[in-house]
């Protein structure tokens, strides 16, 4: 982006962003800003919706009634977050004459990707615990950064979302803590789940930038849509969670993991980034099954949506 090429309108917009002003849906914005926002928010929205599915698999199998109520509430929250974010995206897409139907269509055709973690299998109850504790923990690190996003409606939605994530994380911590304090079999179950999820958790933040930021990232930082790099966020995750994981007597499946005592930077083994690309392109272990379920449910609900649309409004 060469700033000299900006029109007066664009320059004024950037000046607003620079002084920390928040942009509203009806305000003038560069088309590029709108596109970056839709890209980010639609992806976040479908990730919340698809993110309900791995844990939903544990609703009928939760070990106690209390746990079942709590995990049902969490699944409902995730779908609710999807609803909020889809509204934010729809308002941005209005000048293009597009709405949520296009978002769902893009999800089903694979044009719109969702977070790598929600393509993974959840074979045990410990997986449900790890999702709440560490996947939501990772998500809050990213979303916490986005609270300062220059686009006000997204930041407002995130305020509501982050508040509920606080409950999700403790719900996950409580499941993991109970297993960690449990029988040798339960402890082994928790360790196995951590082994399964560790690479996916590192992938969650995206590939490290090294010295090269992508065009999208540079633009998003310029527009104050985001303020930190993938690697900065991942480092925060390590700082927050590595010692906690160790304190439960768990082993992190990376013998090279250590913190540099001087720079405080975490040194770790990179996950397989080719596998990451495969996963987010819907070739993960559960991609097809979950997209299939979502798509079938969407088609089966078509008559309900039709019935409640304004076409059938009385008068």
């Amino acid at each position: 982006m060469v700033e000299e090429q900006f029109t007066d309108q664009e320059a004024y917009f950037l000046e607003r962003v620079d002084r920390g002003d928040r942009i509203e849906a009806e305000d003038w914005m560069p088309e590029d800003y709108r596109q970056q926002l839709v890209r980010l928010i639609a992806m976040h929205a479908v990730s919340e919706i698809m993110g309900a599915l791995p844990e939903k698999e544990w609703v009928p199998r939760a070990p106690t009634l209390y746990r079942r109520l709590a995990i049902t509430a969490k699944v409902q929250d995730e779908v609710g977050h999807g609803q909020l974010l889809i509204r934010v995206a729809e308002d941005l897409m209005r000048p293009w004459d597009k709405n949520r139907e296009d978002i769902m269509e893009d999800l089903f055709t694979g044009r719109l990707k969702y977070h790598n973690v929600f393509h993974m299998a959840t074979p045990t109850w410990a997986d449900a615990g790890i999702i709440g504790w560490l996947v939501d923990g990772a998500a809050v690190i990213t979303q916490g950064m986005s609270l300062s996003c220059s686009y006000a409606p997204y930041a407002r939605a995130l305020q509501r979302i982050v508040e509920e994530e606080g409950f999700h994380i403790q719900h996950g911590e409580s499941i993991c803590m109970a297993l960690a304090e449990g029988t040798p079999m339960q402890r082994a179950m928790l360790q196995d789940a951590l082994n399964r999820w560790w690479p996916a958790l590192l992938m969650f933040f995206g590939p490290p930038e090294k010295s090269q930021l992508s065009t999208h990232q540079l633009r998003n930082i310029r527009y104050r849509i985001r303020s930190k790099t993938n690697e900065e966020l991942r480092q925060r995750f390590f700082t927050k969670y590595v010692h906690r994981i160790w304190s439960l007597g768990l082993t992190i499946p990376d013998p090279t993991l250590r913190q540099d005592p001087v720079t405080k930077e975490w040194i770790y083994q990179q996950p397989d980034w080719n596998e990451f690309r495969e996963i987010v392109n819907n070739h993960g272990p559960r991609s097809e099954a979950r997209l299939g379920l979502r798509s079938t449910t969407y088609q089966e609900g078509e008559w309900v949506r039709r019935l409640i649309s304004t076409a059938h409004r009385a008068g």
Binding site: G80, Q83, R87, E90, R100, R160, I308, T310, H312, R313
Partner: peptide, 18 residues
């Protein structure tokens, strides 16, 4: 916040849920 609905009743119900 806001919701998408076809009638005020539906909007109220969705607002409560959301």
């Amino acid at each position: 916040f806001n919701v998408l609905a076809s009638t005020p009743d539906m909007a109220l119900a969705l607002a409560e849920e959301n």
